[in-house]
Design a protein around this nucleic acid. Structure first.
Lengths: 350, 350
DNA sequence: GATGAAGACTAAAGCGCATTAGTTCGCGAC
DNA sequence: GTCGCGAACTAATGCGCTTTAGTCTTCATC
């Protein structure tokens, strides 16, 4: 026998039980003037007893917003779930959101168009008060769209290829990014310091702004140091393409002595690809992974990696969004600079 | 200048524009009788023009449910994002949900108590119509709670230690699980077939039902085959404890010749730990990983692993939940049996 | 040609909350 | 002793939608 599910208590129940009107209950629970301290306490106690929680639906309807923020991930299903980045980011986001009892509406879609459609739908359905946008890309349509809808948003990641360029102003949109240029500089510095002069960067998706930014930073840094045999190749972030790219660049006439991978998964795949070729890491080839994870620490040798606190990054982004929801102005801020953790996969070239 | 955000069109707008009453609009848009085909079409066209979408808040308030399902992950932040399992599961879940325009409300919490509190809150706030529950454990308080709240749910994973035992009936709760017994049997069969007689199972969290189920299945299978030197040890799924457990069991007098790890991360860590001891895989030690991933395919040698379609698993779970929401009865079904993919990490013992 | 009934549509209520406009009461001020 | 005023509280309205109860028209029925 299914027990009849408990009925959710409403403000009316509280009102009846506390012997006051519904409005008084509303005032009491929302800390608005209009009730005495005694009544406020009594109402609070009754609400507590009944286990009352405001219905977000009703709240949303009376103009208070939905107490929810959205996050859309536009990645083909195949490349999903390979990186630890997102779950960590999300866990940080949660941390900040839960303090304010905000929910996180999560959606995985195939592509950018579907992502935009999702925003439109969420907006029309009153589902979210704001959104977190990841993977900014070239000619990104999302900031304009979100601005048009009046949906507060925080873009996570650099919005421009060029570190120096000002991104177009979007009044309702904050931007938080990691300093890719400094990070790339520290990687190149580490490798160059070890004596490497031929470095290849196995990058991620070419459409993403941060990919372009990293590539640009790499070129700039190489130029500054007078390194001429430095290049980037792009991939889709998958282990397959990471391995494939590794094989390709290692097959060249003058193969690189060091590889920089744009994520942990590709770095590990690259390590295996090098082993296939009979190359020993780090003796014959040095490898650096952008973003640390268990993967990087579990390989043999363990992976020199760019460590950043992804959860904190997510937390900061969520805090920015909360600030926007509270009516503060949009900001553009740079997050902490990632730190390079040298491990076993990098050494002087042979 | 911030443009004034576009106002969301409501049914009233449609009604005015189509020259009918709001009720007629509601009937038309919901395919209810009470309007002529002509009116229905006209209303539909106007709604389309205006880009109208029903406000989920208003819908929820008038008893239609919130068009949202919830998923809580109770894991300390530290162990989060190490496995690819969850994102893959979620992407499958999405696939099924998005067909019905259901949103996924996602929450990461520290422990089971917080998870239960989340369910209570969601229920009281009318936030979700149903939930997906992962990581069922011993004396799990969640099914009872969800039943009490009348919140439809699908439990993902086996709810009992004993494959033969009937779990307590929860009328509003479906259960979907992978056949751990069969999977364990195939692993033991593979290893025994290669000639291994001393097998140690490096299991996951001892509190989880599926951990206990796997351990039980291992014992049963060993008994059936007359293997006496077979055992399980439990861990917290982390690479650290995986490595630590590996070192411990390999230091025994009669160390095992084969190890079975409950996740990919520990298997890789175990591989490294074996290498430290000077053991060569698979010559001196065979290793099997439960759940395949990039990691398993990227090690050297590549890892013999239990392959299952996690995204499909998530999709099936979400479909079960949708069935519950549609008023169908709860079911208990077993999902596809995982398949063992023999790779380089297993071979006959020396 | 009066009677019913079905069909197309409108009016109104209600969901749970916030909010605005009253209403009542007590108390200090003149 | 009356007036005024603020504090404490209630009544009523609206948010956007669904749904039930009506109203009005038309058309078949005996």
């Amino acid at each position: 026998m299914r027990r009849t599910p408990a009925r959710r208590p409403t403000m009316k129940d509280i009102a009846r039980r506390a012997g006051v009107s519904e409005s008084a209950v509303s005032f009491a629970l929302n800390d608005r003037p209009g009730v005495s301290a005694a009544t406020r306490d009594r109402v609070r106690r009754v609400a507590e007893e009944l286990g009352w929680q405001a219905s977000t639906a009703a709240r949303a309807l009376s103009g208070e917003g939905s107490a929810t923020v959205g996050l859309v991930l536009a990645r083909p299903a195949s490349t999903l779930g390979v990186e630890s980045f997102f779950l960590q980011l999300v866990s940080g986001v949660q941390e900040a959101l839960s303090r304010r009892r905000l929910g996180l509406l999560f959606q995985v879609v195939e592509d950018l168009d579907a992502e935009c459609a999702t925003y439109r739908r969420w907006w029309a359905e009153h589902r979210v008060d704001g959104v977190l946008v990841v993977d900014p890309c070239r000619d990104d349509p999302r900031p304009d769209l979100l601005d048009e809808l009046g949906l507060p948003a925080v873009v996570i990641g650099s919005m421009t290829d060029d570190p120096a360029a000002e991104p177009p102003a979007h009044p309702g949109i904050s931007n938080l990014w990691a300093d890719d240029a400094a990070a790339m500089a520290s990687i190149v510095g580490h490798l160059h310091g070890l004596g490497h002069r031929r470095i290849t960067h196995i990058a991620g998706l070419p459409g993403l702004a941060h990919t372009r930014r990293r590539m640009r930073s790499l070129r700039a840094e190489a130029e500054r140091r007078g390194l001429t045999e430095v290049a980037s190749v792009t991939t889709d972030y998958s282990d397959a393409q990471g391995a494939e790219a590794t094989r390709r660049v290692l097959a060249r006439d003058r193969p690189p002595t060091a590889l920089v991978f744009d994520n942990d998964v590709m770095a590990v795949a690259g390590l295996a690809a090098a082993a296939e070729r009979g190359l020993s890491v780090p003796a014959d080839l040095s490898i650096v992974a952008w973003d640390d994870s268990v993967l990087c620490r579990s390989t043999h040798p363990s992976m020199t990696a760019l460590v950043r606190d992804t959860a904190a990054f997510g937390r900061h982004a969520a805090e920015r969004l909360i600030a926007l929801l509270d009516g503060e102005a949009a900001v553009r801020v740079q997050d902490d600079v990632p730190r390079l953790a040298p491990r076993g996969s990098t050494a002087p070239p042979r």
